[in-house]
Design a protein around this nucleic acid. Structure first.
Lengths: 352, 352
DNA sequence: TTGTATGCGTTATCAG
DNA sequence: CTGATAACGCATACAA
């Protein structure tokens, strides 16, 4: 308990307890065997001095750091924040510590972060890869013996376990439901960056979760209709989204419903619609991914595709823990159901 | 570049480059001096083998981990998420890595996390202490040579640098402004947990930021009026907040404005008001702390006390970096201005 | 400029 | 059950 300024080592405790370094290390490290008497003496000494084990030295010695690394696109996004929470909760329960970092959805940054984490000797990596066409850094991590789990985003061929939503099926079902409500022209709005403002081809989408959603969206298109032109990209920031909404509203025949690919896009679309005096759902329906706080606060509340994100994180942590524990076998792809939460923003198409 | 399965060490690189371990270590570690020729040979060998330095071993050797630890109340709260982002951004720029953890606003958990972080040899700690009456663990960290910076929450007497808002002054000014708008009965709603549903005394509030806000709130009370009864506590979760709003609405004479102590409380209060058909600001005004996403999405948009949270984080990181760099001197208390962003939810009191 | 030898704080092996 | 002593991977004082 005594405050001190120099770091104490097992040697110091050993000296105080009048035992050898090895014995002190045994009781402090909780391994090997010692008599009850010496055990107590050592613990007492450690207590008195205020000894605190050096985990780094322990890691170097054992080769196990007890660390797992996490790379997300944006910790400020509630989706990732909650996922991180899920990861942390189950990792900590398993005695693992977590290092979190932010790629900002930038590939170069992601590479750099993975490298840093590997140098920190993380025993496993949970990543939301920003570009599933360029995952050499992840493959290399796996090749060098550090297991990788992707979260929210499955990467075909990488061989890493992945936790993600049932994006394609859920979207197809959602669009079918919307068509039953009379919606014939639906727009999809996403933050994915492309050269043109509309999607040219699915291959432009390097994030599987979004690609699958769009695939589900396109699969619902009636024969002969090209829905690609209904997929609006580059929806990053208020100005861009406002412009997209403006474009949408001036189309003829009019779009009657909007799908927002994440909760940030959803919020801005809602705002742009409100600002223009568009009534939801009378004039326009809106559905967004992720049940963010704001979705239930607006009037009307917003229909969302609920992603059980905390569970995404928990499952990802479970997977990485299993792999760290030596589990072998082919990559496991876990698809989590993402049920629709129906709220006021989704209604019948106008005039239907 | 070659994939391998065993971890490589300087020794391996040295062997491949046909130099001594020390020489290899020098060029790989970027210290000491070497000839250009051997330098290139070593780098080439490292490249070929796919060598990756072990930062933990380096840390043990140098005594510097390059890590700073962060303990926040809730990473899912946008306030903390953004603060963490600010911390990470400037820490990384200074070559430091960040370990983030969640106390869940639980003191025991906070203590445990601080302990874990210290064992991980973090060189500094940035903490949002959940109880400023019990900071022995932080004092101990400082005493043992690990500097501490508190964020959002100043702790008197701890001796740690602190970054926080100008809570008291900003609140007093805000309340004055509201009084000028005719509001005579204002309620303050906070998630702070107390035995009773109303605040009995300021000392019950163990988080300085909130205490200061309430102090500012109370200081605006006209002589003879006890505003304590207007401070509603335990506002955690939708049900509790709904009950508080219900109580508020049934008071006579009626409350005409509500202050929500954080953005989660604010969102739920807004929702509870909407659900009851209360018109903002015609029947009730609302002001919340933190400019969360949802604040600009509602109709009307919500007036907020803007906390430049990314800057909170950046400044906290700067402080901890300075202290790690050896800066001495008394604890620095930096108060950041938190300007009001006036939006539709704040209007004149009804009938004024 | 390079190599040798030792230390960092821990674990872990091996006698005693 | 305990105590020397050698790792772990890297840094560093000192010698060559």
């Amino acid at each position: 308990m005594t405050a001190r300024n120099k770091k104490l080592t097992v040697a110091d405790v050993a000296r105080a307890a009048k035992v050898s370094k090895a014995t002190a290390a045994r009781v402090l490290g909780g391994y090997g065997v010692t008599s009850e008497r010496t055990r107590e003496a050592v613990l007492q000494a450690a207590q008195d001095l205020g000894y605190r084990p050096n985990e780094l030295a322990r890691s170097v010695s054992t080769g196990r750091s007890g660390l797992i690394g996490v790379v997300v696109g944006d910790i400020e996004n509630a989706f990732f924040a909650r996922a991180v929470r899920g990861i942390s909760d189950t990792a900590r329960a398993a005695g693992l510590n977590v290092i979190i970092s932010n790629s900002g959805e930038d590939l170069a940054q992601e590479r750099a972060l993975v490298s840093v984490l590997l140098r920190q000797q993380v025993q496993g990596l949970i990543v939301a890869p920003t570009d599933d066409g360029d995952v050499a850094h992840l493959a290399e991590a796996m090749a060098s013996g550090t297991p990788v789990v992707t979260i929210d985003r499955w990467v075909e061929g990488l061989g890493a376990d992945g936790i993600c939503g049932d994006d394609r099926a859920a979207t197809a079902a959602l669009v079918a439901q919307m068509q039953a409500l009379g919606h014939r022209r639906i727009a999809y709005v996403t933050a994915i960056r492309t050269p043109q403002p509309r999607l040219q081809s699915l291959a432009q989408v390097r994030i599987a979760a979004v690609r699958e959603r769009i695939a589900g969206f396109l699969s619902a298109a009636p024969a002969g209709q090209d829905w690609h032109e209904r997929v609006h990209t580059n929806a990053t920031g208020a100005a861009a989204i406002d412009a997209i909404v403006a474009r949408l509203l001036s189309e003829t025949p009019g779009v009657t419903a909007i799908l927002a690919s994440d909760s940030l896009v959803g919020a801005e679309v809602f705002r742009a619609l409100s600002a223009r005096g568009i009534a939801l759902p009378a004039q326009m329906s809106l559905v967004a991914w992720f049940d963010a706080d704001w979705s239930r606060v607006t009037v009307p509340a917003v229909t969302v595709v609920d992603q059980p994100t905390h569970r995404f994180g928990a499952l990802a942590a479970e997977r990485i823990i299993a792999r760290i524990g030596g589990e072998t076998g082919p990559a496991r792809h876990q698809r989590i159901e993402t049920p629709l939460i129906r709220r006021g923003s989704l209604g019948p198409a106008p005039g239907d």
